[in-house]
Amino acid sequence: MINIKLNVNGKDYDLEIEEDLRLIDLLRDRLGFTGTKEGCGEGECGACTVILEGKTVNSCLLLAIQAHGKEITTIEGIGKEDDLHPIQESFLENGAVQCGYCIPGMVLSAKALLDKNKNPTRKDIREAISGNLCRCTGYEKIVDSIEKASKILQQRGSESHEQL
């Protein structure tokens, strides 16, 4: 057993864990963040995507101890029931959600993209979600949703700028 400290969705955790515990198992089984999904367990499908220090990672490929001292964002850290993030709002309104299993990973990949690139091209968007597989939608509406979310975020950015 080994002790680790990490921050998930803004909250600090101090935990004793088994050395071979994967990050995904820590998040799901120990901390209850079941929005992080396992689709393949070998880093192909991206359903287990989380944001670690601003970058997307496959939580099935990381050991929990690799997250020691780091900040993690899971889907539970994005938006609230009465105040969805524009990416979530856009996925919902544009019919990008079917079975939903890939969606947490998709939303997090989109978030990591838009945090760095405010005005991505469709090609940028496709590249950003190239590590996330979806078997239902055919991706078109997911790309549309991320594009629309970027417009909403830009508009909000310029509005808040004007207020200053």
Partner: peptide, 23 residues
């Protein structure tokens, strides 16, 4: 009309329970 999926909001928030998520 453009209707929202009844299960959509829970899915975009990662709150939907698939069998794996039941403990």
């Amino acid at each position: 009309k453009n209707l929202l999926r009844v299960d959509g909001k829970q899915k975009v928030m990662g709150k939907t329970k698939y069998p794996q998520d039941i403990y």
